[in-house]
């Protein structure tokens, strides 16, 4: 997430109160820049139209990884140094399936995790940009970019929507 210079933060105590407030605020055209929660709130993710294309990327890795593995097996077993194992054909395709399957899984895992790390900027030694440390414990945090909203109106709306606390940073 990009760092916000000036933010208005609404703190909610429960998922339900946060969701009620989110629906209400979005109806008033206040879309939060980000929401932080101790666990994934699927309704909120849908309301904010958050989507992930990681599963498509994984499919891509699996498909091309599989082709690469088969090409590697064919090259090594048929072209580079063919060996006769009990009269089996050099291109012993059924025997290749198991290795291909396992390596596809390995490739998908490694590249999917790397994609997740790059896209979400989650990696070792990263210093967390913590908006409110209670977001990983028991609070639901809504963050608005103060430059993009009518501050006074938002404060009133947040209060009416049941925010436990409103913080300006």
């Amino acid at each position: 997430m990009k760092t916000l210079n000036k933010s208005i933060i609404g703190v909610f105590g429960t998922e339900e109160s946060m969701m009620d407030a989110l629906c209400r605020l979005m109806a008033e055209s206040f879309e939060p820049a980000e929401i932080y929660s101790p666990y994934p709130v699927h309704e909120a993710l849908r309301a904010l139209n958050r989507r992930s294309k990681i599963s498509w990327a994984s499919w891509f890795y699996g498909f091309f990884g599989g082709l690469a593995v088969l090409a590697f097996l064919y090259y090594t077993a048929v072209i580079d140094w063919p060996l006769d194992y009990g009269g089996k054909p050099f291109n012993a395709f059924p025997s290749f399936i198991t290795v291909t399957l396992v390596l596809i899984i390995l490739i998908v895992t490694i590249f999917t995790l790397l994609t997740f790390s790059v896209r979400s900027k989650i990696y070792p030694f990263k210093k967390a940009v913590i908006v409110d440390s209670r977001a990983t414990n028991d609070k639901f945090i809504m963050v608005f970019d103060a430059d993009k909203v009518n501050r006074d109106q938002l404060l009133v709306s947040l209060q009416e929507a049941g925010a436990e606390e409103i913080i300006e940073k």
């Binding site: 997430m1 929660s37 958050r50 990696y123 070792p124 940009v129």
Partner: peptide
């Protein structure tokens, strides 16, 4: 790993 619990991270 710098986890914050944002909606983008969760999805």
């Amino acid at each position: 790993f710098g986890w914050t619990g944002s909606s983008r991270e969760w999805i």
